[in-house]
Design a protein around this nucleic acid. Structure first.
Lengths: 182, 182
DNA sequence: CCTACCGATCGGTAGG
DNA sequence: CCTACCGATCGGTAGG
């Protein structure tokens, strides 16, 4: 997985070959085929590896306070990513393959739904506990925040400038303040 | 260009070959090399073709009224795109290549700056004419709206559901109403 | 997990 | 713009 990551970073998805991965791995392509039947199997497994890496910053949020928890989540999804340019690029490459590859698309859909569930839960909790307005639709609000997060990461890939992540954090913050809070 | 578009739609960027393009073109690969020296030259030209197609919905906005003009722009960037799934996918594929391909990245940066300029101009005009609050930073506001637009299009590729475009239109509308307007 | 190799296909070109 | 083809490289495998 690490060798695939390095090979992808260097060559890009379109030029990612078993030989390039094997070279990073320090073994032959036959060694890779011993662990994965096909290149496709390897790439599906690799996406799971990337998504797990990505969720690292989302999982370990401690606070129970809805407002603070939502803020920490947005920080984890945006600000904490500024040193992970390679990871964001790799995930966008996989995302661009979704229309042509069912297994990849399904994994990404599941991952996106997971993140939306996490956001929806904290927003619903905030509504219930009076931190957010009681006419807020947690489902719609979660979709809105996800849209902002994804937009920031897509811009980040092309511009390679972490200021787009901070801009998005501000936009998300404004959305929370103006739409969710009273 | 049209043949390349069809071949990309069918095979994806990673499996886009000169032979597949030639087949869609109805000629041989040698015929393509008569017009473009290398596959790379063709792809750079192809991106320009895609971006031009994309800007179609942005160029022909008539009204001068800042609020209405901004609304029309957001409609053009989001709602008008719901029947252009293939175009949005193709552009995301090109975008994912940016880190590995200077000419592609520069074209995308230029395109993004153009759209930001258009948004910034209408927002600045609105501030000047009193339609928007006078403490609005047109530059920051344009970046915010672009982030929302890009997020919607990235989600659209994986989910293939135009509701994400409408959600984003609502989020952008809320931003305009809550942050730009009084 | 390596050596050695397979058939298939790649981008590109010489000659017309 | 076609025919015919080039060297290079692809994903994958047999045998050990």
């Amino acid at each position: 997985m690490e060798a695939t990551y390095r090979a992808l970073r260097e060559h890009g998805y379109a030029d990612l070959t078993m030989r390039a991965i094997a070279e990073e791995y320090g073994k032959t392509t036959a060694a890779i085929h011993y662990h994965y039947d096909t290149k496709d199997d390897l790439l599906v497994e690799f996406l799971a590896y990337l998504l797990d890496k990505f969720l690292d910053h989302v999982r370990d949020i401690e606070t129970d306070d809805p407002e603070r928890r939502l803020g920490d989540l947005l920080d984890g999804l945006l600000i904490d990513r500024e040193d992970d340019y390679d990871l964001v690029c790799a995930l966008l490459e996989m995302r661009a393959q979704a229309p042509y590859h069912d297994a990849i698309r399904e994994q990404l859909v599941r991952n996106d739904e997971y993140i939306r569930d996490v956001l929806r839960a904290v927003i619903a909790d905030g509504v219930e506990r009076g931190a957010f307005r009681d006419d807020v639709d947690p489902d719609a609000a979660a979709s809105a925040l996800i849209t902002i997060v994804k937009g920031a990461r897509t811009r980040f890939v092309v511009l390679a400038d972490s200021s787009v992540l901070h801009v998005a954090r501000d936009v998300a913050g404004a959305y929370v303040a103006d739409v969710l809070e009273a």
